[in-house]
């Protein structure tokens, strides 16, 4: 099976931790963002693990993952399982002692890219576009700030990783434009799942899977009101980013309910 031919992913319900049937079937298509919400221990990681391992009824949840609407041949599951899903989480770091450019070249070579120079330039440009703080290809990947490395990981996953499915476990709101990051993944037609309770990210999804007791307890589809709220939430997020910038650049923060204080300079 060619990774590029993965157009949709269907997850059929299994059972929750009390053995009750999870009466949900969900299909996600290329370019879809699906959010995953629920308290710790509610089954979010288990769900992501089922996708990652292309569960065929052989995991504790009993879920099944179909690709392009069909079950996947077991030999294919084994061989492509690892490459189907790219993962990104807050605890991931770069550990290789190479410059950003050298490292991306290495990744491009491992992907047998026809134009490694071009793709490396494109990834660096995209990462800088997402990162609040600019960086060049000469800087060592281990010296990048949290935001810069997150931006580089997202740009690299979007542009160079072969995986059609991307699992994201929360991205912190520090120095990376998360909205643009998700837009980049959508534009590259990734099937994206994001475990997050961040309103900005959660409202970017076309659906939210709500987990409880190890299973999907509900699929929440944003209504008209929530779509309107998204604009307001974004505004606050942008304001928050400006406040951060004020502090970073040595300014004084004058913000609060007192209208006299509420000016930006």
């Amino acid at each position: 099976m060619e990774l590029a031919n993965v157009r949709s992913l269907t997850i059929t319900g299994g059972r929750n931790k009390y053995g009750r049937a999870e009466d949900q079937t969900l299909t996600c298509r290329a370019g879809d963002i699906t959010c995953i919400v629920g308290p710790t221990g509610s089954g979010k990681s288990r769900f992501l693990a089922d996708i990652e391992s292309l569960a065929q009824g052989d995991t504790v949840t009993g879920r099944r993952v179909l690709i392009n609407g069909s079950p996947v041949d077991p030999s294919v599951v084994r061989a492509t399982g690892q490459k189907l899903v790219a993962q990104l989480s807050q605890q991931m770091n770069f550990i290789v002692d190479l410059s950003a450019e050298e490292f991306l070249m290495l990744h491009a070579e491992s992907r047998i890219s026809p134009d490694p120079d071009g793709i490396v330039r494109a990834i660096l440009a995209a990462a800088n576009d997402l990162s609040g703080e600019k960086f060049t290809g000469n800087v060592s990947v281990t010296q990048l700030s949290g935001g810069q490395s997150r931006a580089l990981m997202i740009a690299d996953t979007a542009l160079l990783s072969p995986s059609p499915i991307v699992l994201i476990d929360e991205i912190e709101n520090a120095g990376v434009d998360r909205r643009r990051a998700l837009e980049l993944l959508v534009q590259k037609e990734k099937i994206t799942f994001i475990a997050t309770h961040d309103p900005v990210l959660a409202l970017m999804g076309s659906r939210r899977l709500w987990f409880r007791d190890g299973g999907i307890a509900g699929i929440i589809v944003p209504d008209e009101n929530e779509r309107e709220s998204a604009a307001y939430v974004r505004e606050i997020d942008e304001q928050w980013a400006r406040w951060r910038e004020t502090i970073r650049t040595g300014g004084l923060l004058h913000a609060g309910p007192d209208p006299d204080l509420h000016h930006t300079d």
Binding site: Q87, Q91, N93, F94, M153, D156, T157, L160
Partner: peptide, 8 residues
């Protein structure tokens, strides 16, 4: 693998 980047 959970603590290094996808690229690595």
């Amino acid at each position: 693998g959970d603590i290094v980047s996808q690229a690595e």
